[in-house]
Design a protein around this nucleic acid. Structure first.
Ligand SMILES: [Mn+2]
Ligand SMILES: [Mn+2]
Ligand SMILES: [Zn+2]
Ligand SMILES: [Zn+2]
Lengths: 132, 132
DNA sequence: TTACTACTTTATAATGATTCTAAAAAGGTG
DNA sequence: CACCTTTTTAGAATCATTATAAAGTAGTAA
């Protein structure tokens, strides 16, 4: 399996559950945005059995910490994650409640003129809210 | 009181609780960011009695709907609000877990080249995460 | 293979922010 | 005041997320 090495390199044991979650998350044509609930549904569809909810949470957080997933800041009662870990921005369709990627070429360069002493910029994220 | 008219114009009855919350939120030198919990603490400090939690939630949401408060999208278990309703962006200090305003002059113009059919841009918000 | 240890999974309970409920209180109007 | 609507409130309910702790598994070295 191609994910075994990836997990080992990260210091994560390649367990059955983690490998199966890798398949659901990363064996896709396109990247996508999801909540934990979305992911549990995908797992139940793709596999014919369940992975415990605690494991799904644990795994997603482990993957996020290792940089294989990104969390998207958005006002929702649920946390949104992204399998697209490149630097990029988002549309948020308020009616559909769906995120849409804005690739870097879709957004002009962003200049931040203000500086805070002793702090470095870690990331710059743009959220563009869409209405009808 | 200066807030009575403001509330009346919005179709909100100027109740004692709403006026007191107005004082805590808007009788300040500077705008600020807060969670519901922060606000409850401020109310308990400024006034010598409590306003029920449900009323604080109701009022904040009513004010947000009327445009007197903004919600700031951020990854937190609590919802952050802003008394600065101008178009502006934010630093988020990851260690302090504090928002810092970026005025429009602190950020260069932002160009979004992508369009989605039938959708209009409602807002563009930049979140700049800071680390040490 | 076996034994050992650390890590992982799991069911379940706990937490905590937010929302709901429905009855009491207060505002607006005449 | 009398009437009606809106608002407040305490408390319960909801629900995403995290914690717990016992059972299972992976890695490793004898
Ligand atoms: Mn969802
Ligand atoms: Mn706070
Ligand atoms: Zn994305
Ligand atoms: Zn602000």
């Amino acid at each position: 399996m191609k994910y075994i090495e990836k997990l080992r390199k990260s210091g994560l044991r390649p367990t059955k559950q983690r490998l199966q979650i890798c398949e659901v998350l990363f064996d896709t044509e396109r990247t996508f945005h999801f909540t934990i609930n979305d992911l549990v549904k995908k797992i139940n569809e793709k596999l014919n059995h369940k992975i415990s909810l605690a494991t799904v949470y644990n795994t997603v957080h482990a993957f996020e910490k290792k940089g294989y997933l990104k969390q998207i800041p958005i006002n929702s009662n649920q946390t949104y994650f992204d399998t697209n870990i490149s630097d990029h921005h988002h549309f948020y369709d308020l009616k559909e409640e769906k995120l849409i990627d804005l690739e870097n070429s879709d957004v002009g360069p962003i200049n931040i003129f203000k500086k805070i002493d002793g702090k470095k910029i870690k990331s710059v994220e743009v959220l563009v809210k869409l209405e009808d």
